[in-house]
């Protein structure tokens, strides 16, 4: 059987890669995708704990995270489209003022 710590290690590595991308990338869509990567790392940890504790609740949490991620992606991408329409850029360094 796969040891719990190995699954959690994978989860941590994926989370850290996502966090690194969040810091390093300048394209707002890529930054957004890195957030999704971090969410998935957390989901993996939930599933692993659910398996090792023998309860379904962890899987339910993943279910909710996926649903919320769908809502988040819809709104987030709509915001990105609106931003691009006004500023004509996707670079987060150029998106630094609160006013249009």
């Amino acid at each position: 059987m796969i040891p719990l710590s190995h699954v959690l290690t994978l989860s941590v590595i994926l989370f850290v890669i996502g966090a690194a991308g969040f810091v390093l990338r300048r394209n707002i869509i890529t930054v957004f995708m890195c957030i999704e990567l971090m969410l998935n790392a957390a989901n993996l940890a939930f599933i692993a704990f659910s398996r090792y504790l023998g309860t379904l609740d962890g899987q339910l949490f993943v279910f909710f995270v996926i649903v919320v991620a769908a809502a988040e992606a819809a709104v987030g991408l709509a915001i990105i489209i609106a931003l691009y329409r006004n500023r004509e850029t996707l670079n987060i360094e150029d998106l630094d003022s609160m006013k249009l």
Binding site: P3, L4, S5, R51, Y52, L53, G54
Partner: peptide, 9 residues
Amino acid sequence: FPSGTAPAA
């Protein structure tokens, strides 16, 4: 979580 942690049934 030392690597010996056994999964539930």
